[in-house]
Write a protein that binds this DNA or RNA. Structure first.
Lengths: 252, 252
DNA sequence: TGGGTTCTGTGCGCTATGCAACGCATATCT
DNA sequence: AGATATGCGTTGCATAGCGCACAGAACCCA
C-alpha cells in the first residue's frame, strides 16, 4: 500500500464528486498497488472489489474460445473498474487485467453498494461514465473491424500514454499484438515504421513516444472521438489531458 | 397503429414486470408500426421515444467515417430500444434502424423517466437488460473481429429469425453485407453454400430458413452465449425461444 | 564467460477480403 | 409490352493480414 501518488495524480471521477460524497467514498477506500499482469476479475463471476485507478491502467478484454483475448477498452485515472455496479448488479461483464502498473483506490462491493444508496452525485457520475463506456465499446468494435494495424497501434499508444502519465512504458510487440487482436509480426512491422519516422522509439519492451502530434495524425479518428465523448458527459478534462490540450493547440 | 399482435406476441421485458407496474407502463405506451429502414434515433442526439418491440426488430449500428455502418446488436421482443434511460440519461449511444418490420410499444422519454422513479421492478429489469446488452456488445466486437463470414452470417440469420417470429424475411445480400461489415460478394458466396447445403433458401431478398438445427451448427458460439447471458439474468425464456428449446432438445 | 531466454526483424506462401465490373434474371412501373 | 430497376452470380486483380519459421540481438543468470 503506497500513498505517494495521492497528491499529484488522483482519479477524475472522484474529483468530480462534491466534497461531502468524496470524503465519504474515500473513507471506505484503500490505496492498493496495481501489479502488471494481474487479473482483477473474470467474466461470469462477481466483483469483490472495485477500483478507481490513480496511476496505471486496466484493460477490459473479451475472450472467445480458440482466440486470444481482444481488448475492448482501457481504464485509467479517468475511469473506474466495475462501473456496472451502478446498475445494482455485481456481475462482471468482461475480464479485467492490469496493463500498466500503478496505484488505485479500492473499495469493497458491499460498501460501494451502500454508498450508492446515499450518494446521488456518485450515482450520476457513474451512470454517465457507464454510458461513455458503452459508446467506447461500440466504437472499439467498429475500429477493430475496419481500421488498420498502424492506425490502431497509434491509438493504443496514445491512450496508454494518457493513462500512464509518462512517455515511457513497458510493452512488448507480442503484448501489443494480443491487445489489438493481430499477429505479432504485424505489430513489429507497424512499430518499425513508426520508429523509422521517429514517432516512437523502443527496444526490448521499453517504448517511448517521441512525437505525440505525429502519432495523433497517424491514429484513427477513434482516439479523438473517445476523448470527445468523455468530455461531453464528464465535463472538465483530466489534469493531464488538460495540460496536453494546452501544449498542443490546433489539433484537427 | 395496429394491435393485432398484442395477444399473441408481446414484449418479454414487459411481461417480466409485476402486474401493477406493467399496467402503469402500458397506460403510457402506444402501439406503433416499425417500418423497415426507418432510423429511430441517431448517435449524439437525444431520445424522444423509447420502443419495446413486439414483433419486428431494430439494429444498433456504429458508423465510422468512410465506412459502412457495422451492426452491434439486434433488439427484438426480448429487449428494448433506449435502455440507457435507466441511467437517467436520454442520450443515444448508437444509431438505431428498423431491420425487420413489425409493431412495438412506444413511450415518451419524459413519461418513462417519471415511471422509472416509481417502479423499482422496471428499474431492476432495465438495469439487467442494459448489462446483458453490454456483454453482447463486447461479444459482437470480438465476433466481428475473429469469426468468419459463414459463421457470422449463420448467427445473424438465427438471431433475426428469433426476433422476426417467422421463417421468412426480407434481406438482400447487400443488406446482410452491410450489417456484417463485409463485401456483398462475400455474402453471396457464403449464402450460396448454405443454400446448396439446404440450410436456407432465398431468392430476390426473400430468405427462408429450412434447417435451423444445421444452421446453428454452422454458426459461431456467439449465438448461444448471447442467449445464455440473457437467460442468466432475465430469467425465463421468451415464449418463442421456449418453444424452440422444447423442439430442439439436446443443444450443445 | 557462456548458455539460455526473451525480444525483435524478416521472409514466404496463403487466404480472406476489398474494389470494380459485367451480365443475366426477375420484378416493377408506365 | 417494353423500359427500368433490383437482386444475384461471377470474375479478375490488389493487398492486408495470417501462420509459420528462422535468425540475429539484447538481456539475464549461473
Amino acid at each position: 500500500m503506497s500513498t505517494h501518488a495521492e497528491s499529484t495524480i488522483t482519479n477524475h471521477l472522484i474529483e468530480l464528486l462534491p466534497a461531502q460524497e468524496r470524503l465519504l467514498l474515500l473513507r471506505h477506500c484503500e490505496v492498493v498497488e496495481l501489479q502488471f499482469g494481474i487479473v482483477l476479475c473474470e467474466h461470469n463471476q462477481e466483483y469483490r472489489h472495485l477500483y478507481f485507478p490513480m496511476s496505471g491502467f486496466i484493460s477490459l478484454v473479451t475472450k472467445l474460445s480458440g482466440h486470444k483475448p481482444l481488448e475492448m477498452c482501457v481504464i485509467g485515472n479517468e475511469g473506474m473498474l466495475g462501473v456496472t455496479m451502478v446498475l445494482g448488479l455485481s456481475n462482471v461483464p468482461m475480464q479485467a487485467v492490469v496493463q500498466g502498473k500503478g496505484t488505485a483506490w479500492r473499495i469493497d462491493v458491499g460498501e460501494l453498494q451502500q454508498l450508492l444508496r446515499h450518494c446521488p452525485h456518485l450515482r450520476k457520475i457513474l451512470s454517465q461514465y457507464l454510458f461513455v463506456l458503452m459508446v467506447q465499446l461500440s466504437q472499439s468494435a467498429a475500429c477493430a473491424h475496419f481500421h488498420e494495424i498502424d492506425q490502431r497501434l497509434a491509438r493504443w499508444l496514445l491512450m496508454s500514454q494518457d493513462r500512464a502519465h509518462s512517455n515511457e512504458f513497458h510493452l512488448t510487440h507480442q503484448f501489443l499484438a494480443d491487445m489489438l487482436g493481430v499477429r505479432r509480426s504485424g505489430v513489429t512491422v507497424a512499430a518499425g515504421l513508426m520508429q523509422q519516422h521517429e514517432l516512437i522509439q523502443y527496444s526490448r519492451g521499453k517504448i517511448s513516444i517521441t512525437d505525440r502530434t505525429a502519432l495523433k495524425r497517424a491514429s484513427c479518428e477513434c482516439y479523438q472521438s473517445a476523448i470527445d465523448e468523455y468530455q461531453r458527459l464528464l465535463g472538465k478534462p483530466t489534469p493531464d489531458s488538460a495540460r496536453r490540450l494546452l501544449t498542443e493547440q490546433g489539433t484537427p
